[in-house]
Design a protein around this nucleic acid. Structure first.
Length: 138
DNA sequence: GCCAACGTTGGC
DNA sequence: GCCAACGTTGGC
């Protein structure tokens, strides 16, 4: 298994934006109530990298976060069934990569972000990660 | 604001 | 255990 693994985490910017994460230095990624998203969350390890994507408003990847604490219990979940992680901001993208750009790149056509648009925690393959990073550099 | 995709619920 | 109805999410 190669490390780190790559992920994409979504947030609605009026709920919790990249700037909020930067301001707080570290954020808990909680509130996930989807089983595939949970599976992805639990597969995250410290040091894994996540694209931070703004959904519903913005519709773009704005930064890269690094997993700082893996596989904790979701503090917003009273049943104790759901997982969460903590992330810290690693790098802001020089140029945000929009969903439109991602969709117009044939090599990214079957990434989880595009195929499963409602998934809030998507895995990203290393080559997909590389392509998006290149797009962010312009 | 609309609609498609997906998850969940509840009747059978 | 199946499936229709319904609610929610998220892109457009």
């Amino acid at each position: 298994m190669s490390r780190p693994s790559y992920w994409l985490i979504k947030s609605e910017p009026f709920e919790y934006s990249w700037n909020d994460l930067v301001a707080q230095k570290e954020g808990t990624w909680d509130g996930v109530r989807n089983h595939l998203a949970k599976k992805n969350l639990k597969a995250m390890e410290v040091g894994d990298l996540c694209f931070f994507y703004h959904s519903r408003e913005g519709l773009e990847i704005v930064g890269i976060a690094e997993v700082s604490v893996a596989d904790i219990l979701d503090p917003t979940d009273e049943t104790g069934k759901w997982a969460a992680v903590k992330v810290k901001p690693k790098q802001e993208l020089a140029r945000p990569v929009t969903l439109k750009q991602i969709k117009s790149e044939p090599k990214l056509a079957d990434c989880e972000l595009v195929r499963l648009s409602r998934l809030s925690v998507a895995s990203i393959k290393p080559d997909e990660w590389k392509i998006i990073c290149e797009m962010a550099e312009g």
